[in-house]
Design a protein around this nucleic acid. Structure first.
Length: 437
RNA sequence: CGGGGUGUAGCGCAGCCUGGUAGCGCAUCUGCUUUGGGAGCAGAGGGCCGGCGGUUCGAAUCCGUCCACCCCGACCA
């Protein structure tokens, strides 16, 4: 993409409503625009990141055997009356009426909807286990939206629902999601620590929150320092194998949110306990037959007897992760995207647009990199070097390739790592070799 | 939902107290000079001063009311 053609409205000044760093940078980097309190339009740069995150989430859900569906944003109140939640959910649920005065609602979550799908079509244990997920916009009418996309009213969430014949089987589904979540976050360059959690209005008796560590997080968290050495991806976990020992080993290390942590009973010696703040980016629940019983989602077992299906639900805050990743990865000049979610891989900076050699080198690099599928944002604007480099640092692409007359006359360009700031000089050919293949 | 605050150009702000028909920086557009970390000069465009009502000869400014947004707290898959 050429920056002269790209809609990237960067700001030099921070809009005054933005307080925390991710919100400031998302506005300054032209990623989102607030539409009203807690509701955002996603501009091209922000939407690219959102889709990258969504893709990783989708791939890991698919790998765990879940099947993607798409349920509506607008739901009928009748379903929620069946489960008993219509009256219980409170003002956080946006209730609306259609032209026939039918009660509708903008879904804050989809347990009822998915249970309705299940009960319509599935009657036998032979269909189990089953996991259905979708990635869809939710609306929760938060009293006080804040922190940009991190606590919005409208937000994109992946929610998965598992259906199993019995408790033992449901635990296996739960464990699959537990591991899938660890992998998902690790792929985004995040360390998300599972912490025992309350199940809240969803209900249930087994629940974990996945918390990423960031100084600007909403809640205080406590964890054993051994967590610092955990590397999920290096473990090469077989998602279809026996996951219980793996889950147990993760849970053997202490980690708790503020509500759950009690210094007087904490098993971790003070010297080994780390206290910081965290952002909840996922929450998994096993809630048994709460909805299946209320809504009549029953299956016939191998013994010929009917019983309500055992369910769990598993949420990932996709749009929240955009902010969460920035909170976890930035410096005072801007965002530092992990490569897996970066909107572009390389930012190509033409220092002197009217220098024929610089421009030739840039055009050639741009063509070859993009041709090889390396996403490259080419700053071909006739701006001052300072503002181009400042913009590049702000939008935080992992690599900057700077082509200026000073180095290009020696046959090299500069390759800068955004995270480390390290710069090396390479010939254009070496740049291609570095990033292609 | 309690408490506090703010609405003036795309963004950041001044003007309001003491009423006289709107200004600064950045951004945008034109021209020239510049060009390795947010340039300089000259010129230009862009505002129902959040909405409605009131007071007044006259309201961004005073009064009333509504709305929107932000912050702290409570709440929160």
């Amino acid at each position: 993409m050429r920056l002269t053609n790209y809609f990237l409205p960067t700001l030099r000044d921070t809009p005054k409503e933005a307080q925390i760093v991710s919100h400031r940078y998302m506005l300054r980097a032209g990623m989102v625009q607030q539409a009203s309190a807690g509701i955002y339009s996603w501009l091209p740069m922000g939407y690219r990141v959102l889709r990258k995150i969504e893709k990783i989430v989708r791939e890991e859900q698919d790998a765990a055997g879940a099947q993607e569906v798409l349920m509506p944003t607008i739901q009928s109140a009748d379903l929620w009356r069946e489960s008993g939640r219509y009256d219980g959910y409170g003002k956080e649920m946006l209730r609306i009426q259609d032209r026939h005065d039918r009660d509708m609602l903008f879904g804050p979550t989809n347990e009822e909807q998915v249970t309705d799908i299940f009960r319509t079509h599935l009657k036998s244990y032979r269909a189990l286990p089953l996991m259905l997920y979708h990635i869809q916009w939710k609306f929760r009418d938060e009293v006080r939206p804040r922190f940009g996309v991190m606590r919005g009213r409208e937000f994109l969430m992946k929610d998965n629902y598992s259906f199993d014949l019995d408790h033992a089987s449901a635990v296996k589904s739960y464990n699959k999601m537990f591991v899938a979540y660890l992998k998902t976050y690790a792929r985004m360059g995040l360390k998300a620590i599972p912490m025992a959690a309350d199940s809240g209005p969803i209900g249930g008796d087994m629940s974990h929150e996945f918390i990423i560590l960031a100084e600007t997080g909403e809640s205080e968290v406590y964890y054993h320092k051994d967590w610092l050495d955990v590397d999920v991806l290096s473990q090469d976990i077989d998602i279809d194998g026996d996951l219980q020992p793996i889950v147990d080993s993760f849970l053997s290390r202490y980690a708790a949110t503020d509500e759950k942590h009690d210094p007087s009973t904490c098993p971790v010696p003070e010297a080994d306990l780390i206290t910081t703040r965290g952002i909840e980016v996922g929450h998994i629940f096993y809630f048994g037959t709460k909805y299946s019983e209320a809504m009549g989602a029953r299956v016939t077992g191998p013994d010929g007897k009917e019983s309500p299906v055992h369910m769990g639900s598993y949420g990932v805050g996709v749009s929240r992760l955009v902010g969460g990743i920035i909170e976890a990865s930035h410096d005072d000049r801007g965002i530092i995207w992990p490569e897996s979610v970066a909107p572009f891989h390389i930012g190509l900076v033409n220092v002197k647009i009217d220098d024929a050699t610089c421009t030739d080198v840039c055009e050639d690099l741009y063509r070859k990199l993009n041709g090889a599928g390396v996403e490259t944002l080419y700053d071909d604007r006739n701006e001052r070097t300072g503002s181009k480099l400042a913009d590049m640092d702000l939008i935080g692409l992992p690599w900057q390739v700077v082509v200026g007359p000073r180095s290009v006359k020696n046959g090299v360009v500069e390759v800068k790592n955004r995270r480390t700031g390290e710069t090396e000089e390479l010939t254009p050919e070496a740049v291609i070799n570095r990033f292609v293949g």
